[in-house]
Design a protein around this nucleic acid. Structure first.
Lengths: 202, 202
DNA sequence: TTTTTGTTTTACCATTCGGTCAAACAAACG
DNA sequence: CGTTTGTTTGACCGAATGGTAAAACAAAAA
């Protein structure tokens, strides 16, 4: 690619194809388990052609992870301290569940990275995720203190939301095996709404 | 190894060392991301020596997974239909949480395999896990019908238990980052007891 | 002690890996 | 048209991969 001149249509198209292929492959096999040939073939390109757009395997992975973490935190950012406490938390749960349904590959990519010790994004966790969670935990604690929701540990509340929603993406194979291939999401939504209503109602 | 004659002490020791090393490595990098050299070095053996005890990389992985799934399901098997409903379910939660704390490598090995589509144990899920879950779901449904616990979807109840307990093993890095390296388990236990008490009390 | 059985090592092999290079090809522009 | 810029390919490289063969070594049985 010539310097950093204007981005051509071909560049946009191929970079997107590569990132999409990378998401496919990395989310299934993790970083070390994925090969450039696999990504190139999925993207419909030759391996040298792929390396014309990205300098290395790691560069693709990093770009995917960084753009992902941002999107992934959006629903938490959207939690409004001035809104109705229970509705805000339940809306967060539902948005996260929807993301698990719509973007399972992203969820699995993230899960793979964390499972393997987050070697490539531990910095982003520290600088991006942690401060945001701290901020929202404070909001939740204030809601508890004000009697708007039950007294719950805000950190573990957030962990449980992550765990239960992402489970439907990350453990999809297991969930569908147990449910004989039924769509788990309608039932999950009902269950989670019931659970958080009971948990949070003061 | 000569035929299937008596197992020597050296065999027992080395096979255990290999399985332990395999657990270490596979749980961190997944099957494709792990190498025999890595496992051999962790076990303190040479690679050919390792292959004297196991015929292939896959054989180590399969043996780990199969013995794991059994152990993993023990707490669910232990759920007693004739016991006190709420206590039984909460005991299950606590046992699972304890396993996440005591055996995080096993949890991550399993998570890795499921994340990658369970290519090596989809059969065991179908024949081992599913029937057991079906059986226990029936028990839970009867508890609901008898008014002993609130009316909840038994399958999603079980999923949520798996998700929230295993989260502390599988997403350990993330959890500890958010909690500034505090031990998450005491807080997790309190939170989960609170959550399931509120959810299940009719 | 000799022989047998069990264990470990050294040297090796074919394949796949991430990545490079230079040349061929296509598009746009003058 | 010709030239410049951007894109794609085929051939290749060194390192790492899963796995093998055979011989050296150790332990125990005879």
């Amino acid at each position: 690619m010539g310097k950093n001149g204007p981005t051509t249509r071909i560049q946009v198209k191929n970079r997107n194809a590569i990132l999409d292929a990378g998401l496919d492959v990395f989310s299934q096999f993790g970083f070390r388990g994925s090969t450039l040939d696999q990504i190139a073939e999925t993207a419909g390109l030759s391996k040298p052609n792929l390396l014309y757009y990205f300098p290395s395997k790691e560069a693709i992975h990093v770009e995917l992870l960084e753009s992902l973490l941002d999107t992934w935190l959006d629903p938490l950012r959207a939690m409004n301290p001035n809104g109705d406490a229970i509705s805000e938390i339940k809306a967060y749960v539902n948005r996260k569940l929807e993301m698990a349904r719509e973007f399972p590959r992203e969820s699995r990519l993230f899960a793979n990275e964390i499972l393997q010790g987050a070697p490539r994004i531990s910095g982003d966790l520290e600088n991006g995720l942690k401060p945001l969670v701290d901020e929202k935990a404070k909001v939740i604690r204030e809601w508890s203190a004000a009697g708007k929701i039950a007294d719950v540990d805000p950190y573990h509340l957030i962990f449980s939301i992550w765990a239960m929603t992402q489970h439907y993406a990350d453990f999809d194979v297991q969930v569908r095996t147990v449910l004989a291939n039924d769509d788990p999401f309608p039932g999950a939504e009902a269950y989670l709404n019931q659970l958080f209503t009971k948990l949070l109602t003061p």
